[in-house]
């Protein structure tokens, strides 16, 4: 009897957990649909822009310094890592191109995304979570304003639109950082760096990176707002929601990155054939 009870309990708790996860998943997509549904109307209304612009300032403008710094370091690190190997193999004339391809198509968007998830995602979840536990979301509803439209849509939209712009900053500074080590620290001729970049980096790489950035930005905005809207009560609940938002955003960035790379590589080969970088 006790054994069958234990099995019963296990099955019941497993089933309960599974149902809760499915409900959560469904709630997330309903939240996404509601958030997206207000975009078109808000983009054509003065009130919509009044809500969007302060978020653009916080999410975009205020993130520029830290994103630029990230980009610079990414470029410098890649150059430092690769310089001796390429020099030894007599391939130094290709290093600028290789590093810049990595920056614009992969590391620029991914690390800008991670930085955005930490800086902006955490702050958004904390802000919305605090509003949730102090009944401000209920207050909005009680006054006839839709909290998702008022709070989530502008934040999501700002993340979606500004992530690619911020990635451009990261890319430019990545190239600059790499050049700094190549030409200034190592004392190699600048023209080699730029000519290989010009030869090897294609618009395809740039666009791949920007498409990734749009998706990363959208994922960060949506996950952070959702976690803030559904956090548990109390300071602990808000803290937990922030951690969950960052972890979920980070994993989603990596997953999107993987699948997008597979898709983009497949498309490139189908349209232009195999590209050899070495």
């Amino acid at each position: 009897m006790p054994r069958s009870n234990a099995i019963e309990n296990w099955v019941s708790s497993f089933g309960g957990g599974l149902i809760a996860q499915l409900e959560n998943f469904g709630r997330f997509w309903m939240f996404c649909a509601a958030t997206v549904s207000y975009i078109a109307v808000d983009l054509f209304s003065v009130r919509g822009w009044k809500r969007l612009l302060p978020q653009c300032y916080f999410i975009g403008t205020r993130s520029v310094p830290v994103i630029m710094l990230t980009g610079t370091f990414v470029g410098m690190v890649l150059l430092v890592q690769g310089y001796d190997q390429f020099d030894n193999a007599g391939l130094i004339f290709q290093l600028g191109g290789i590093v810049n391809i990595s920056v614009v198509s992969e590391l620029g968007p991914v690390l800008a995304g991670v930085m955005l998830a930490g800086r902006v995602g955490g702050a958004l979840t904390a802000e919305l979570g605090t509003m949730n536990v102090t009944e401000q979301l209920l207050a909005l509803r009680s006054m006839g304003a839709a909290p998702i439209r008022y709070l989530a849509t502008p934040r999501f939209l700002a993340c979606l639109l500004l992530a690619p712009l911020l990635t451009c900053y990261a890319n430019i500074m990545g190239a600059f950082g790499a050049w700094l080590i190549f030409a200034v620290v190592k004392g190699t001729d600048s023209s080699i760096f730029w000519s290989s970049t010009q030869e090897m980096v294609e618009y395809w790489d740039l666009w791949t990176g920007l498409v990734k950035a749009v998706l990363f930005g959208g994922a960060i905005g949506m996950i952070s707002c959702y976690k803030g809207f559904h956090c548990k009560p109390g300071a602990g609940g808000v803290g937990q929601a922030c951690t969950q938002a960052f972890v979920a955003s980070f994993i989603t960035i990596l997953a999107i990155d993987l699948f997008l790379n597979m898709i983009m590589n497949g498309l490139y080969e189908r349209w232009y054939g195999f590209r050899s970088l070495i």
């Binding site: 509003m131 102090t134 401000q136 209920l138 207050a139 009680s142």
Partner: peptide, 18 residues
């Protein structure tokens, strides 16, 4: 919404927008 516009709610934690 039209119903809620006829009712005011004073929340326990005030719920003022910070």
């Amino acid at each position: 919404v039209p119903i809620r516009r006829q009712i005011s709610f004073v929340f326990q934690l005030n719920a003022l927008f910070d």
